[in-house]
Design a protein around this nucleic acid. Sequence first.
DNA 1: GGTAGACCTGGACGC
DNA 2: GCGTCCAGGTCTACC
Length: 306
Amino acid sequence: MSWTLKTESPFALDAVIDAHGWIQLHPFIQPPDRPGFDYTLRLASSGRVITCRVAPVEQGIEVTTTTKLNAAKLNAAESKELQQAAAWMVGLDLDLRPFYAHARGEPRLAHMEAGAKGRLLRAPTVYEDLVKTILTTNTTWSGTRRMNETLVNTYGPAATDADPAHADPADGAARHAFPEPARLAAVDPDELRATVKVGYRAPYIVALAQAVATGTLDLETLKDPALSTEEVRKFLLSIKGVGDYAAANMLLLLGHYDFVPVDTAAVKSVGQMWHNGERIGAKEVYAAFENWRPYRGLAYWFWQWD
DNA sequence: GGTAGACCTGGACGC
DNA sequence: GCGTCCAGGTCTACC
């Protein structure tokens, strides 16, 4: 089964994929031999775990199911859920034309409008993106990838009726969806620490999963574009394990662009470009992008440094 | 409001 | 092979 989803605003799937490293985090798989990506998800409406293939078409994407579930077609609710998830993942709801107009004339951002850049690949749920963001804190990118892969393969449900032809191209293993909140909520933090080697992040992840699973924390409300940036930021910062960097990263994913995920790379880049390589802090990073309000984070993220 | 130290892991390095 | 050091954000205690 397949569906074509389109948007009115400038769009390029390869720009979404290349915007950051999320494509390297399971359940995303980037096939080496064709454009687009594969993603394994559990459909909440039925509990089925399927793998879908997302490929570029003009002004949008084509979404195709790639498992043997093709033989047992998705029902209406499942189809709707899959299409909504795919549209959210690639940001079909976003319109960056106001930013392009704002950035017109800045040579270091000219590549954005030309390449329809600005969207960042995201998971179907805010919960998944938040767990992944916590896994990016205080570690290297290779550490993030390792922790995420182990988390997904250990606690994520395997694709039902998986077609061996569509197994993980890296090792042929069955693909897994991201672990449900209820699954991680039931894991002892010490076990998570031992199996996934997430270290001190274990209690943060379990507490987050428990809050989502019990309904104490409704992260999906953060997708509401009517919420102000400050409202969303305050909400995120109230979660244990989420600090300024993690909140800013999540804000970018949620379509709020005024905060910069200040990490060591940010202070290094800004220090080299505007402070003769001197050691600087978050204050100087924000000062460097002051003229880009309310898009400071977006301008920073796509700034061409050389 | 600002700062120091602890939290974990993997990788680099020296022996 | 083993031990030590370091990088990477957030939290807590303290001033």
